[in-house]
Amino acid sequence: MTGTPEPKHYRALFLSDIHLGTRGAQADLLLDFLRYNDAETIYLVGDIVDGWRLRRSWYWPQAHNDVVQKLLRKSRKGARIIYTPGNHDEFLRDFLGTHFGGVNVVADAIHTTADGREFLVIHGDQFDVVVRHARWLAFFGDWAYVTALNLNTGLNVVRRKLGLTYWSLSAWAKLKVKNAVNFIGKFEETLSAEARRREVDGVICGHIHHAADHSDFGIHYINTGDWVESCTAVAEHHDGTFEVIRWADRRKLPAVAEKIGSARAAA
């Protein structure tokens, strides 16, 4: 168990794959993260709201509304917020170039670091063959993924009773299934190639719910992860260095975990 963290201010924060509107969204942990972390610029790198699930059945608890209000409050206090929609919130792609509540909606962005490097910021679904060319399979995969998350919820109820911390069954399985591992590697290679094509120094993306920070393909690749499985964000420090923040690991707070469990049980 950790104590109360010191508030931190970064040059930029990158968040993606929050999936508000689903029972799997870890809104309480995200609110906890936003309470202690601020930045000059906040990038919302797609799949912030899950339009796919909301079209099928409406689910929008107070915690999800609180996340939206918290982000808008940061904008009112001076943070610049840039939103690059993903496949689950693709409805926002009809509003590219517009501003609402201080949020700028763009297809992608170029982020310049404190030390002058340029990074392409993009969700990444545009380079997922399944999403682009076999949407029925993508929807089926979404159903299977939600089923895995439901199993995950039951598992973590037991873990909490045993005094253990949150653990993601779906994230573990993703790294154990050969096809999933191969997909992650191919996705990273493809996004790295796109950054190279655009003549920038790196890429910051989301989509595959797998946080990463490496240069395995000859260019700086960063993935923000998600707020369903791993509860991760990416921060740029004021000297231009990047950090993957794993908030669920950093904040082993029983009260937060219990609140999440109670909310899901009530749902």
Rank of each mutant, 00 (worst) to 15 (best):
A114R: 11
A12N: 07
I18Q: 08
G51P: 03
W60T: 11
V130W: 00
T113W: 00
V131T: 12
T41G: 04
R11I: 04
Y10R: 04
F14C: 02
R80M: 10
R11P: 02
A114K: 09
L120A: 11
G24E: 03
A109W: 01
T22I: 10
K8P: 10
L34H: 01
S75P: 06
R23A: 13
R55H: 13
G51I: 06
A134I: 06
G116R: 07
P7L: 12
V106I: 11
R76C: 11
R55G: 10
D66Q: 13
D94V: 04
L54T: 00
Y59I: 06
K8C: 13
L72F: 07
E118P: 04
I82R: 06
D32I: 01
T41I: 06
G24V: 04
R73P: 02
H19D: 05
I81Q: 06
R55A: 15
F95T: 12
N65C: 11
R53E: 14
D128C: 09
Y10A: 05
D66C: 09
W60I: 09
A109I: 01
V129F: 13
G97N: 00
D125A: 06
F33M: 00
G21E: 05
G102N: 03
S16F: 03
D94G: 03
L13N: 03
A114P: 05
Q69L: 15
V67P: 01
I82Y: 07
G86V: 04
T84K: 10
L120I: 09
N87M: 10
W60R: 12
Y59W: 10
R80C: 08
E40A: 14
Y43R: 00
V130L: 08
L54A: 02
S57G: 10
F100W: 12
R53M: 14
T84P: 12
H19N: 09
I81D: 05
F95G: 08
V45P: 00
A79R: 05
R117C: 05
A25R: 04
V131M: 09
T113Q: 04
